[in-house]
Structures are given as C-alpha cells and as structure tokens.
Amino acid sequence: MDEQAGPAGAAQRGTHTPVLLERVLTLLAPALADHPAVVVDATLGLGGHAAALLAAHPHLTLVGLDRDPLALERSRERLAPFAARTHLVHAVYDEMPQVLAELGMSGVDGVLFDLGVSSMQLDLAERGFAYAHDAPLDMRMDQTSGIDAEHVVNTYAVPELARVLREYGEERFAMRIAQAIDRQRQVRPLRSTAELAELVRTAIPAATRRTGGNPAKRTFQALRIEVNGELDAVRAAVPAGLRALQVGGRIVVLAYHSLEDRIVKQAFAALSADTTPADLPVPLPGAGPEFRLLVRGSQSAGDAETTANPRAASVRLRAAERIKEAV
C-alpha cells in the first residue's frame, strides 16, 4: 500500500500520507547519503516515499516501478521536479532484474517495497477493490492485461475458488462462500462488488457477521491476490531485491498481511544466517550471513499514525543491510 490515505476520498484531494515515512527514510539513509546512490522503489504508487527520498538525498537516482499505468502517470507528475534523477517504468516488481539490466545498473544502494493495494486503487471506486463501494468486479492493478475478479468468481470451479479464499484470504468459511457463489452464478453471473459483498455476508454464520469488521474483507483480499498474482510476484521480487544490493545497501519492506510478511521473513532469514553446519566448532569460511537484520522481528505503526491513517494499522516493516558479497 504505497500511498495510504486517511479519510475516504483522500485520493481525489491529494492528501496521501506514505506509511512509516520517517522510519523508512531513517533506515535507508545510511546507504544513500552523501554519494551518487541508486534506490529502487519497486512499488511506486503515487510517489510519496519516492518524493521524500529524492528531496532528502540530492545525489540520489531513483528507479520507480509500478504495474498500474494510472499510478505511474500520477507519480510522474508528482516527481516532475526530480525528473532528471528518476527512471519510472511500467513493470511489476518481480521484473526488477530486467529493468535494472536495461538501465545498465549492476547493483543498487537501496530497495523499497510497499506491498499490497494502493489507496488510489482503493479510493477509486470504479477499480473494484473496495467492498464499501459498488463497482464492476475488476481488481486488476494493471487494467491493460490479465484476468479480472469477475472472471474468477464466475468461472473457477468450486474447489479451486474455495482454495483461493482459504489460502489467500485465510477465510475459514471458504467452502460455504464458494458454494454460495456457485449457486448464484447458476442463476446469473456476478458482476458487481456490492452483489458479491452481500452474498458473502449472507453466506457466513450470523454470529460471525457481528464481529471482526466487514465479513467480505477476506474474500476481497483473496480475489485481489489471485487476480494480480501478488504472492508469486513477492516470492520472486524480494530475493531479487536482496540480490541487487551492493555491500552496505539496504532494503525495507512494508507488508500488510501475514502471507506477504511470511515470505519476506523467510527471504531475509535465509540470507542473514550462518550456514556452517551445527556440529562444526568454528564457522566455515564464506558461510557467514550476507545480510544483517536492522529491525528485531517486524515493526508496526504507532498509535498516533494508525489513528491518523487507519490503513497503517496492519503494516509490518522489515529491513536488512548487505554486509558481504553474495557467494
């Protein structure tokens, strides 16, 4: 969620506040300050983090990626004062290696991922991400390609649909919801977010509806992840971001649900551990960790930030620094 808005409709008013902005700037600063550094903002969104980084580091070059053409267009406008120091590319974040190769960059000094859906996408009702607004069932971050949510709910077999809801939404009533969707689509296809949200509400037990917020939240998350292939992209992109860093380079990742955060945690752990077999008395040459963790566990937003910006409530930040060359 690169650009996090406060009140609904903030996207249209341009009042976006990037999540954990000061913490992100502080963590990346040692790798970017006082030299001609390169940072990759792999989830550019509306450019809030990117603008702050460019303003803080006058010698910085920024490579910004986003799969959403509209977000890229808006961030290009926002970053216009820094145009000479930016390369903005229409690409999914797992395409980072190809983008850097095309730019002739063999290594970078910083990488930032702000995962999930952006507040621009949430606040533009016609994109179909939000269950609070009636809109076509789309949910594509890049509306120029790929399947949409309408295709998923109307064509996936019940077991496959239930799997998507269970694995990506961690929805315990996944089969009930999938069966309810199937009954409805036998009558007529589902076309709108409001129709789907109401169907989910009625499909789950009445007692469950009274707790835990909107009962459609997990279903919408699952469909969005499926439509955009988000977890597969994260699995490829975070290791690629780690590999791209030069010694002294730093990576910061903001994740918003446990599935993303688990992938990030595992990727960081794999490269921040000594690989010497446990039964050897001394570390093996070359077996030491490539990275050191900069945050113990993960970091959340503080009470003040989550009060001002409710979309920051679920964020989990992890960060690491490369301390030796890749083996």
Rank of each mutant, 00 (worst) to 15 (best):
245 L>P: 07
290 E>C: 14
250 R>H: 04
312 A>P: 09
255 A>D: 08
296 R>V: 11
273 A>D: 03
304 A>Q: 13
306 T>L: 04
253 V>I: 15
264 V>S: 10
237 A>V: 14
269 A>C: 01
262 R>T: 06
287 A>W: 02
318 R>I: 05
266 Q>M: 11
253 V>A: 11
306 T>M: 13
272 S>H: 06
287 A>R: 05
298 S>Y: 02
317 L>I: 09
245 L>D: 04
254 L>K: 02
314 S>H: 03
292 R>E: 14
268 F>P: 10
275 T>G: 00
239 P>R: 09
299 Q>E: 15
289 P>Y: 01
240 A>D: 04
258 S>A: 15
281 P>T: 11
268 F>H: 11
265 K>S: 09
251 I>S: 12
269 A>G: 07
305 E>W: 08
256 Y>M: 13
252 V>C: 14
242 L>Q: 06
295 V>K: 12
306 T>Y: 01
304 A>L: 11
284 L>K: 06
309 N>Q: 07
307 T>E: 15
313 A>Y: 03
306 T>N: 00
239 P>E: 06
264 V>W: 04
256 Y>T: 12
313 A>K: 15
272 S>I: 13
259 L>E: 13
261 D>E: 13
299 Q>N: 03
314 S>Q: 02
260 E>G: 01
301 A>Q: 00
292 R>F: 01
318 R>G: 05
242 L>D: 03
296 R>I: 01
278 A>L: 15
238 V>L: 08
262 R>K: 14
271 L>N: 04
240 A>I: 12
256 Y>Q: 11
286 G>R: 13
269 A>D: 08
257 H>D: 05
301 A>M: 00
309 N>P: 07
310 P>F: 03
295 V>G: 12
295 V>P: 11
290 E>N: 11
293 L>V: 15
279 D>Y: 09
309 N>D: 01
260 E>K: 01
282 V>W: 08
258 S>Q: 12
310 P>H: 04
281 P>Y: 06
298 S>R: 00
280 L>D: 09
294 L>P: 07
257 H>G: 08
268 F>Y: 13
268 F>L: 15
265 K>H: 06
293 L>N: 02
295 V>T: 13
317 L>H: 04
247 V>D: 03
299 Q>L: 15
320 A>W: 00
279 D>G: 01
315 V>A: 15
262 R>D: 04
281 P>A: 07
238 V>W: 02
287 A>V: 09
292 R>A: 09
257 H>I: 11
260 E>S: 01
291 F>M: 13
307 T>I: 03
256 Y>N: 06
301 A>L: 00
251 I>Q: 14
310 P>L: 05
239 P>C: 07
319 A>C: 15
281 P>H: 06
237 A>H: 10
244 A>Y: 02
291 F>R: 03
287 A>D: 07
